[in-house]
Design a protein around this nucleic acid. Structure first.
Length: 848
RNA sequence: GCCGGGAUGGCGGAAUGGCAGACGCGAUGGGCUUAGAACCCAUUGGGGUUUCAAAAACCCCGUGGGAGUUCAAAUCUCCCUCCCGGCACCA
C-alpha cells in the first residue's frame, strides 16, 4: 500500500523541526552578499490573517527562499505594528486592556503565519508597542525636535469626532465627496488646535527628486508626486491703491498677467481686514463668517458654485498700472500659495465662472487659433496679445520675461509651492508612544526676558538665542517646551489608565504619568507637566525596517555596522493603500537619519511591489458584511499550506486584482497529489539517471522557474512546474532520481513541506530548505533540431525542421523551404517578392 | 477635470514585434465503480470546405472599436469607447 499525501501530517511535522533547528535564522556574521526582503508588517487585529496577507507574504517567502538558495544572506523578518486605534476602540467596547487584545491578536497571527510555513527569522520579531521599541520611536522624535524638524504649532487641523483625535492630512480621505477619517469613516471637522508637527515639507523637493532613484510601481510614484504637488510659478506683488499695503499672489501663469481683471483674497487672508473699505465691512464680515462655518466639503461642493464679495479696494497691476477690484471668495484657499490670486477669467475656468457671475471684465491675452467664438475660456498656452511689449511671445518665454522684468522693480520672484503639508503627529489617544516632552512653567521666563540664558539652559546659542526654549501656552499659563533627556527614555505608557476617549488625552487622567514630573533643565517639580498626547502610529511604522537589523540593541536604534550589513531594503512588498502614508513618511525619516549621519542610504526601499487585492469568489471585496471571507486556517485544514501558497501564486500576476476560486485551489491540490504519487513511483523504480529528454525538460524548468521568480512572475513559474508534471506523467519510466531531486529543489520555495518530505523519502540529506538552487546546463537545454515556421504573406503555412548547424545558413534554409511540395503548390506561378528569415524562428515569404 | 493602470475563449490567465489562447478551472463524452466521490483517457475560440459518416486534412475569421507603421501587430503609433485606482476650486 502506497503512502498517501497527507499535508495535515507532514506540514506540522516539518514546521516543528524547522523551528527547533532555527533553520531560518539569519546571521549577521557572514561574508555572503546581503538581501533584505521585507513585508509591510501587519496591524495585528482580532480578525486574524486573511488571504490577502498570505498572498504578499508567500510572494516574499518564495523570493526569500530562492535568494537564500542562490547564496544570499537573506534578512526576512516579521513584526507587529501593534499600537493603534482599532485595539483601543475594541478595548473601550469590551473593557479589555488594549495590551491584552493586542497580545492575543499577535499570538493568533503568529500561529497562522507559522502554519503557512513562512520562513521568517523569529529571533528578530519586533512589537512597536513594547517599551524596548518605542523608546527608539521617542528617541527619533527627540532627534527631530533637536534639529528643528519637530515643532508645535497652532493650526486648523482635522478632527475626527468619533475617534476623538486629530489626524494627519494623509489620514483624511475622500468618500462620496466628504472628507472622512481613514480609520472609521466619520466625517472630519476642522479645529484650531496647537499640535506637534514633523517638518516633512522641508524635504518636499528631495522626496520628489529621489523617486527617480527607486524601482517602484509607476502609479505609486505618481501618487507621491501628486501628493507632494510641486508647482513652479511666481509670486507677484500688487499694490493696494491709496494704501501702502501690498498683496502677494501666487501664479503659475505669469504670462497672463495682463489679463488679470481682479484680485481675490481667501476669506481668512490677514490682509482682508486692512483692505476692506468701511462701506463694505459689514458684507465682508458676513461673508467671512459664512465661509468659516462652511466645512471644507461644502466649500468644495460638487457644483462648484462660486461666491464672493467686493472689498471696496483696488489693486494696481504692476505690469500695466491698471486698477483692478479686490474681492474675497472662498474658492481661494488660504492653505495654498499665498492665499491670494490674480484672477484671469479669459484663461482660467474658475475665474471665468466667477467673473460671469459678478459681471467682472474678461480680457483675452493669449491668441487662440481658429474659431474662438464658442470658446468661453482657454487655459492652454499660446502666443500673447493685448500684453504691451510682450505681444507675440509664447507663454513660456513671456512668463520668464515678465517675472524677470518685475523682479527688477521688486514686484515679483520665482516661487515653487507644494501641496504637501507638515505631518501632524499628535494624537489625543491612549494606545501609542507618549511624546517625550515636558512643559515647565519656570523655564519659560528666559524667552520673556527676550534674550538668551547664556548657556545656562545648556543651549549652544552663545548669547543671543531667540528663546532657547520655545514656549507654549496651556490653559493660560506659559510653559517652556523641554525635551525629555535621552537617558530617561522610554517615557513609559502607564498601564492603569482610563482610556475612554473624551477629546482630552487619556494620559491627562493618569496620576502615575503626571506624578512628580521633574523639569530636566531646572529640576522644578511644581507645575511641571508631561505632554499627554501620543504619537501617530505611522511614526512607529516609518522606521521599523531599521530595527530589524539590530532588534535587541539597547544603546542605539540600530548600530551602523548592522545597518551596513542589511540596509537598505532590497525588496518590499505590501498593499497599495500606503502610497502617501507609510511609504512617504518612511522616505522622509530615512532622509532625516541620512542627513544627520546615522545611515549610509537615503532611500529605504529600493524595489517595491504591491500585491493585488484578493476578492471573494463572487468578485466582491471580502467583508464580514457579505459573509464571503476566506479564512486561511480553513484553506490549510482542507487543502494544506503548500496548496494554499501555490494557489495564491498561481491565481494571476502578483499585482493584479484576482478573485478566489475554491475549484482553482482544488486544481493545485490535484497537482501536488500527482507530484506525490509520481515521486513515490520514481523512488520505487529507483532509476539513477534520467533519459536525455527528461533531463532537458528538467533543466529547462530550472531556468524558467528561476528567472520567473526573479521577475516576480510566480504564476508562470507554477504553470511551468505543472507542465513538467504533465510531461513526467507521460514519461514515468524515463524519470530518474536525479531529475526528481532537481524538481524537488525547484518546487521547494513554493511548497517547502511536501518538498522536504519527498526529499527525505528520496534519501537526500536534510534539508531541502538549505540546499542550493540547482544550476541548469545550457548544453542540455539546447535543441539539436529546430523547427522553423514558414509563413506566406504573414500566414502560417508550413513547418520545416533544421539541425542547429543548418539554421545559420540562410541560403540553405531558403532553398529547402521553397522546394517543399507544399510551398511549391502555394507559390505555384506567383513571384516571390521577398524572403525574410529570422534565424531559427520564422520565415516569411512575401508574394506579389 | 487631471494623472496612472487596464480590456485576450464559458472563467482566471499565457504570449511584449515572429505559430494567439501555455497552465489551471469549468464543460462535454468515455473508462473504473453496485453507485457516487476520487482518479484516469479524450475533446473543448467561432465559422467553413472535402466526406454517407467519422477520423483527418485544408481554408477563412478572431486579442474592446477605428485608422496607421511593418515582410510580420494582442504587442509599436494616433483617435475613440468602456472599466479599475489615485488626486481634484492647488491658482
Amino acid at each position: 500500500m502506497k503512502k498517501i499525501y497527507r499535508p495535515d501530517e507532514i506540514e506540522p511535522k516539518w514546521q516543528k523541526k524547522w523551528e527547533t533547528d532555527k533553520i531560518y535564522q539569519v546571521k549577521d556574521t557572514t561574508d555572503k552578499k546581503k538581501f533584505y526582503c521585507l513585508d509591510m508588517f501587519p496591524y495585528p487585529s482580532g480578525a486574524g490573517l486573511h488571504v490577502g496577507h498570505v498572498e504578499g507574504y508567500t510572494a516574499t517567502d518564495v523570493y526569500s527562499r530562492y535568494m537564500r538558495a542562490s547564496g544570499y544572506n537573506v534578512l526576512h523578518p516579521m513584526g507587529w505594528d501593534a499600537f493603534g486605534l482599532p485595539a483601543e476602540n475594541y478595548a473601550i467596547k469590551e473593557k479589555i486592556h488594549p495590551k491584552e487584545t493586542t497580545q492575543k491578536a499577535i499570538e493568533k497571527f503568529k500561529s497562522q503565519i507559522k502554519r503557512t510555513g513562512l520562513s521568517y527569522d523569529w529571533s528578530r520579531e519586533i512589537d512597536t508597542s513594547s517599551p524596548e521599541y518605542y523608546k527608539w520611536t521617542q528617541w527619533l522624535f527627540l532627534l527631530l525636535f533637536k534639529n528643528g524638524l519637530a515643532y508645535r504649532k497652532k493650526a486648523p487641523v482635522n478632527w475626527c469626532p468619533s475617534c476623538r483625535t486629530v489626524l494627519a492630512n494623509e489620514q483624511v480621505i475622500k468618500s462620496e465627496d466628504k472628507n472622512v477619517c481613514e480609520r472609521c469613516g466619520t466625517e472630519v471637522v476642522k479645529k484650531e488646535l496647537e499640535q506637534w508637527f514633523f517638518k516633512i515639507t522641508e524635504y518636499a523637493d528631495r522626496l520628489l527628486q529621489d523617486l527617480s532613484k527607486i524601482d517602484w510601481p509607476q502609479s505609486t510614484k505618481q501618487g507621491q508626486r501628486n501628493w507632494i504637488g510641486r508647482s513652479d510659478g511666481a509670486i507677484i506683488s500688487f499694490k493696494i491703491d491709496g494704501s501702502s499695503e501690498f498683496v502677494e499672489v501666487f501664479t503659475t501663469r505669469a504670462d497672463t498677467l495682463f489679463g488679470a481683471t481682479y484680485l481675490v483674497l481667501s476669506p481668512e487672508h490677514p490682509a482682508v481686514l486692512k483692505v476692506t473699505k468701511k462701506e463694505y465691512a459689514k458684507e465682508v464680515e458676513k461673508y467671512k463668517e459664512g465661509a468659516a462655518k462652511k466645512s471644507e466639503i461644502q466649500r468644495s461642493a460638487v457644483e462648484k458654485e462660486k461666491s464672493g464679495v467686493f472689498t471696496g479696494s483696488y489693486a494696481i497691476n504692476p505690469a500695466n498700472d491698471e486698477k483692478i477690484p479686490v474681492w474675497i471668495a472662498d474658492y481661494v484657499l488660504m492653505g495654498y500659495g499665498t492665499g491670494a490670486i490674480m484672477a484671469v477669467p479669459a484663461h482660467d475656468e474658475r475665474d471665468y465662472l466667477f467673473a460671469v457671475k459678478y459681471k467682472l471684465p474678461i480680457k483675452k491675452v493669449i491668441k487662440k487659433e481658429g474659431n474662438d467664438s464658442e470658446v468661453v475660456y482657454c487655459d492652454e498656452e499660446g502666443v500673447l496679445e493685448n500684453s504691451g511689449k510682450y505681444n507675440g511671445l509664447n507663454s513660456e518665454l513671456a512668463r520668464e520675461k515678465i517675472v524677470r522684468d518685475l523682479e527688477k522693480e521688486g514686484n515679483a520672484r520665482s516661487e515653487v509651492t507644494y501641496k504637501l503639508r507638515d505631518w501632524l503627529i499628535s494624537r489625543q489617544r491612549y494606545w501609542g508612544a507618549p511624546i517625550p516632552i515636558i512643559y515647565c512653567p519656570h523655564c519659560a521666563h528666559f524667552e520673556d526676558e527676550g534674550g538668551c540664558c547664556g548657556g545656562e539652559c545648556g543651549c549652544d546659542h552663545g548669547g543671543s538665542c531667540e528663546g532657547c526654549y520655545d514656549t507654549t501656552e496651556i490653559d493660560g499659563v506659559r510653559y517652556a517646551i523641554v525635551p525629555v533627556p535621552v537617558e530617561d527614555l522610554p517615557v513609559k505608557l502607564p498601564v492603569d489608565v482610563d482610556f475612554k476617549p473624551t477629546g482630552e488625552s487619556p494620559l491627562m487622567r493618569s496620576k502615575d504619568f503626571q506624578a512628580n514630573v521633574k523639569c530636566p533643565k531646572c529640576g522644578a517639580i511644581k507645575g511641571v507637566k508631561r505632554e499627554v498626547d501620543t504619537m501617530d502610529t505611522f511614526v512607529d511604522s516609518s522606521w521599523y525596517f531599521f530595527r530589524f537589523c539590530d532588534p535587541h540593541n539597547d544603546k542605539e536604534f540600530a548600530s551602523k555596522e548592522k545597518m551596513q550589513k542589511f540596509l537598505p531594503v532590497d525588496m518590499y512588498m505590501g498593499g497599495a493603500e500606503h502610497t502617501v502614508l507609510h511609504l512617504l513618511y518612511s522616505r522622509f525619516l530615512t532622509k532625516v537619519l541620512f542627513d544627520l549621519g546615522f545611515t549610509h542610504f537615503d532611500e529605504p526601499f529600493m524595489k517595491l511591489r504591491h500585491q493585488g487585492l484578493v476578492l471573494a469568489g463572487d468578485s466582491q471585496k471580502m467583508s464580514k458584511r457579505w459573509g464571503n471571507i476566506i479564512n486561511p486556517d480553513d484553506v490549510i485544514s482542507a487543502f494544506g499550506a503548500d496548496t494554499m501558497r501555490t494557489y495564491e501564486m498561481f491565481i494571476g500576476p502578483i499585482e493584479a486584482t484576482k478573485a478566489w476560486s475554491t475549484q482553482g485551489v482544488e486544481g493545485v491540490r490535484r497537482f501536488y497529489n500527482r507530484v506525490w504519487s509520481l515521486s513515490l513511483d520514481a523512488i520505487e523504480r529507483g532509476l539513477k539517471v534520467s533519459e536525455k529528454n527528461v533531463l532537458k525538460m528538467v533543466h529547462k524548468l530550472i531556468k524558467k522557474v528561476g528567472s520567473d521568480i526573479e521577475e516576480l512572475k510566480f504564476n508562470t513559474a507554477v504553470s511551468a512546474m505543472m507542465e513538467f508534471s504533465n510531461f513526467w506523467k507521460e514519461n514515468k519510466d524515463l524519470v530518474g532520481l536525479d531529475s526528481l531531486k532537481l524538481f524537488v529543489e525547484v518546487m521547494a520555495p513554493f511548497a517547502p513541506h511536501i518538498a522536504e518530505e519527498i526529499w527525505e523519502m528520496a534519501g537526500e540529506k536534510y534539508s531541502v530548505t538549505t540546499a542550493s538552487w540547482p544550476e541548469y546546463d545550457d548544453g542540455l537545454i539546447a535543441e539539436d533540431e529546430v523547427t522553423v515556421v514558414v509563413s506566406v504573406n504573414g500566414k502560417v503555412r508550413d513547418r520545416v525542421k533544421f539541425t542547429l548547424g543548418e539554421i545559420k545558413d540562410k541560403e540553405l534554409v531558403k532553398s529547402r523551404v521553397l522546394s517543399s511540395e507544399k510551398m511549391r503548390e502555394i507559390i505555384s506561378a506567383r513571384n516571390v517578392k521577398d524572403f525574410i528569415y529570422v534565424e531559427g524562428k520564422i520565415v516569411n515569404i512575401v508574394l506579389e
